[in-house]
Write a protein that binds this DNA or RNA. Structure first.
Lengths: 189, 189
DNA sequence: ACCAATATATGTTGGATTGATATATAAAAT
DNA sequence: ATTTTATATATCAATCCAACATATATTGGT
């Protein structure tokens, strides 16, 4: 899957400009799927318009540069469906925070504690935002994705909160007994 | 943070070759921190050796090309510490699976169900692997990271397992009542 | 015994991608 | 009044990745 598919997917929800696509892909509801920057979005939109997967209408604006609003065509929807039908690649998760924690024995305790509490706050904020975003969702697809985000971010938030007392040199007594080999799946119903 | 810091971090745990670093960075215990490929690792190692952050000894092997084993120097450790002290960037999470789920209304139910059950299996397998990896860990840093992985992967696994009955068109009755505004944090102690 | 595939090991390269920058204006904040 | 932020498109140097090339050992199937 590539930048083309991301654009087609976003445009399948409604018309948009390159600028709007970038915003959605880096911050908004579309920020956890495929990476995107201006340098890849604008050429992709131009090429796909040439290939008749998109149409483009210019809206001349007072002062501002022309707004190029892109719409998906039937050929574009077909290409989107094809792309969505290929097996998804493995999820990609990269965390500099975890890298720092992994190396924490080489850092001093105060700094690590500060990093941890800072991350706890970030996670709490982000979780709250995801919850707020999810409240007005009605369609199954977006609801599923939001629920997934809440589940995963909630777990990360809980874990960091419970380990704020992490020590770089000593294993906390509260951590040790947890390594029970049996899974303890609670029947959550 | 960049590829240089990743290499320094890996080498701070022990000497390694470029080939070994690549393996660890794409599959092993170091696969969730910074992205890396041969095209970036080999030049980084060469340059850092020139800068005296690393030393390199060649081990001539029978037949095979010379094995270049890199070791971190004190200057390297200093640079690592500096890099680790800078504020970590936001975690990066990208999932084509979630993109497909988001767009599921444009796909047929059977295909989506198949994707879901396939992902459920993948998550279960991966979770089991993380649990196995974590059993022999003793140092606090690696234990923290492994615990984080278990928490997050466990949550993803639970969520997908509970939503195998996901429908592309209808919101399942079992999903609707869940959107309670209060958090229901169960005291896990 | 033979062959194919995989693993070890280093390195290069074409094409793609990013992050920064340039341009231009409006609105909001200080 | 002035700085910052937001809207909006586009380019480009620097970087990076995926794939390939090279060379040999090992494993596993037939």
């Amino acid at each position: 899957m590539n930048i083309r598919t991301l654009c087609l997917g976003i445009l399948s929800f409604g018309d948009a400009t390159g600028y709007e696509i970038k915003k959605m892909a880096e911050d908004g509801l579309f920020s956890h799927f495929v990476e995107a920057s201006y340098g890849s979005i604008y050429p992709a939109l131009t090429r796909m318009t040439d290939e008749d997967l998109l149409t483009c209408r210019s809206e001349t604006q007072d002062g501002k540069p022309d707004k190029k609003i892109y719409s998906i065509t039937q050929a574009g929807r077909d290409e989107l469906t094809t792309a969505l039908t290929t097996r998804p690649k493995k999820d990609k998760f990269k965390s500099e925070f975890l890298f720092i924690m992994l190396m924490s024995e080489h850092l001093d305790q105060d700094h690590v504690s500060e990093v941890l509490s800072h991350r706890a706050q970030e996670l709490a904020d982000e979780l709250e935002m995801i919850r707020a975003c999810g409240e007005h969702l009605t369609k199954p697809g977006p609801r599923f994705v939001n629920g997934y985000g809440q589940a995963v971010m909630g777990a990360a938030n809980d874990y960091v909160s419970k380990n704020l007392n992490f020590s770089t040199t000593q294993i906390e007594p509260s951590e040790v007994p947890e390594r029970s080999p049996h899974v303890t799946v609670e029947a959550a119903e």
